[in-house]
Design a protein around this nucleic acid. Sequence first.
DNA 1: TCACTTTTTGACCAATTGGTAAATACACGA
DNA 2: TCGTGTATTTACCAATTGGTCAAAAAGTGA
Lengths: 206, 206
Amino acid sequence: MPDPQEKKPSRIQLRNRALILEAALDVFSVHGFRGATLDQIAEAAGLSKPNILYYFAGKEEIHVTLLNQLMETWLDPLVEMDANGDPLPELLAYVQRKLDMARDMPRESRLFAGEIITGAPHMLPHLKADLKPLFDEKCAVIQGWMDAGKLAPVDPRHLIFSIWSTTQHYADFAVQVGVLMQSDDAAPGADAYLHALFSNLLTPKT
Amino acid sequence: MPDPQEKKPSRIQLRNRALILEAALDVFSVHGFRGATLDQIAEAAGLSKPNILYYFAGKEEIHVTLLNQLMETWLDPLVEMDANGDPLPELLAYVQRKLDMARDMPRESRLFAGEIITGAPHMLPHLKADLKPLFDEKCAVIQGWMDAGKLAPVDPRHLIFSIWSTTQHYADFAVQVGVLMQSDDAAPGADAYLHALFSNLLTPKT
DNA sequence: TCACTTTTTGACCAATTGGTAAATACACGA
DNA sequence: TCGTGTATTTACCAATTGGTCAAAAAGTGA
């Protein structure tokens, strides 16, 4: 058994663990945890099932590893929103970062969505311990901006929900978007539209 | 075997089919098609597994029945948007109807989301055949309103996407919303926020 | 009440699934 | 080149899963 805690993982270990996680992301993001099978992951990774279980203790550990990996970057765009920056540009830049993230990591977005839809059995503790404080902090920052008259006053919580939902939509509902946009690429239009949506809402009315 | 096509279904048939669909909606909406089991559905319905298969030919038929049932009402709010109505109120009323729907039918919303995330294996034909034409038609209506100067000009397609995503978010991500709103009920605030969001965007700048 | 239909159940199956164990093949430093 | 730990595979298991079937039970109308 490889023990990632002690000893350096070998080149093969590094490569195969990455291979497995990549394949598992493909499978879990589409079928969810219960709907995915080790055989699917094995085939997608080009490894045998027992070989996969040589690198991970079980299906659940693969899933948890992916979620932990995701949690490290998922909140970055929000973390980067700077209380000392220019309010409106700061918020619009946050929207843009979330949109870029949905574009660059659609599988991760769907993995997250699936986890939440199923009741967040693995991530609920994380949501309460990490997301909630960050959410409250950033809501307070936004509220401060609004109190200072730098932004039009709206409920910061629903503002953030709407930023999450509108941006992630392009990843989570990509199939539907694809059908409706036909050959058109949704990407450029979404940028401009969301910019207009949120700057119209937040630009203070003098 | 009951044959719903011919003969009136008995009182027992009506009751048990409804019982099964209700239970299946609970289970499918949380675990998705592949992740749900007949045993779970049977237990939730309070019936034995073979008894369930007496009313439905198989797991898939239950799922398809639910999706078909959903498709009948899912697009209603958009259908009701009247080209002859007052543009801005008409659109805001659509937002409200979608929001009400997310509140009244959160399981159906999650069932739909799960189906799309997994690549819409069952609903893709429906999306292309029914949703696409409706979408195009309503986009044209909105575009007409904008051309007439009744609404601020934005891409109608992304406008509709944002209406869908913001409203459905309260159903699909209810767990997350619950954690972040704490004891607060999200409902009243969401109404006001989304009203402000879309009326600010769409009110024409004279 | 009785015959007949509908509904329900218990026992069962074959396929799939997550996982194991032992044997084998491989990589790599001495 | 050889020996030793690493990687991989082959052959399995036990549990779960979707589904079947015939018999029993419960309705139902005359």
